[in-house]
Computed example of a mutant assay.
Amino acid sequence: MYAIICEGAAEEAILDVLLDNKLLKLSKKDLLENKVHRTRSAKNFFDKHMRLSFSEKVYIYRILDSKRESFTIPKKIEREYRGKFEVKNVITAPEIEILVIISEGQYSKYQKSKLKPSEYCKQILKIQKIKEYKYVYEYFSDISRLLDAITKYRELVKKDSEYQMLYDLLDNKFKN
């Protein structure tokens, strides 16, 4: 059993595109409640979703844009669920919107700016709805655009051994 959690609408949209098009190693039917969950709080996630009884271990994929984001699991929950879950962090630093910048062929220009990716998208690329689920889902509905951006991100950004990348979650047949 798996769970995917993310913080915002853009991340959720990208994961939904990947799942809806069967591009990941896992499918929606493999997921806890058959969907991506939006939350930042470990306590809220465990209180709301892990109170169910599972016969198998739950692998929790956290989609993060910062290594500083905490997912502090209260000691009581840690004891109660010991051995029943494993958290895997998937990084999209500095923000998930970097995939749009890469897709638009603007990565080198973005690097010269002092803007956050979401601000770059709004100010330079004139994409005002960059954080809205519907816009991001439609933008990446051309799955080749999304796969190319994920692959290029992997090539452009130094991988940290503590974190996975979206590329690592792709089904092998979609990796170069």
Score class of each variant (00 low, 15 high):
17 V>M: 01
104 E>H: 00
17 V>H: 01
134 K>Q: 13
50 M>C: 12
136 V>Q: 11
36 V>Q: 09
139 Y>A: 02
89 N>M: 00
141 S>Y: 01
121 C>H: 02
73 I>N: 06
154 R>F: 03
141 S>N: 09
49 H>C: 11
76 K>N: 11
11 E>L: 11
73 I>K: 07
124 I>L: 07
24 L>G: 08
20 D>E: 13
15 L>V: 04
110 Y>W: 08
65 D>K: 14
27 S>D: 08
144 S>C: 07
16 D>V: 00
55 S>N: 14
1 M>W: 06
37 H>D: 04
157 V>I: 15
17 V>S: 02
86 E>K: 14
87 V>I: 15
166 L>S: 04
68 R>K: 05
144 S>N: 15
111 Q>C: 15
45 F>T: 12
35 K>P: 05
144 S>V: 11
58 V>H: 04
5 I>N: 02
116 K>T: 04
98 I>E: 00
146 L>C: 09
55 S>R: 13
156 L>D: 01
19 L>W: 03
6 C>K: 03
35 K>M: 14
130 I>H: 11
78 E>K: 14
123 Q>N: 09
71 F>R: 06
48 K>Y: 04
120 Y>E: 01
101 I>V: 12
92 T>H: 01
121 C>N: 02
32 L>M: 09
29 K>A: 13
140 F>N: 04
55 S>P: 05
48 K>L: 13
132 E>R: 02
4 I>P: 07
164 Q>Y: 15
123 Q>G: 01
143 I>W: 00
153 Y>S: 09
173 K>Y: 03
14 I>N: 01
44 N>K: 11
46 F>T: 13
164 Q>H: 12
140 F>A: 07
10 A>R: 05
172 N>G: 05
9 A>E: 15
163 Y>S: 05
48 K>R: 15
53 S>I: 15
167 Y>W: 13
47 D>G: 06
108 S>T: 10
68 R>C: 03
124 I>T: 12
90 V>D: 01
77 I>E: 15
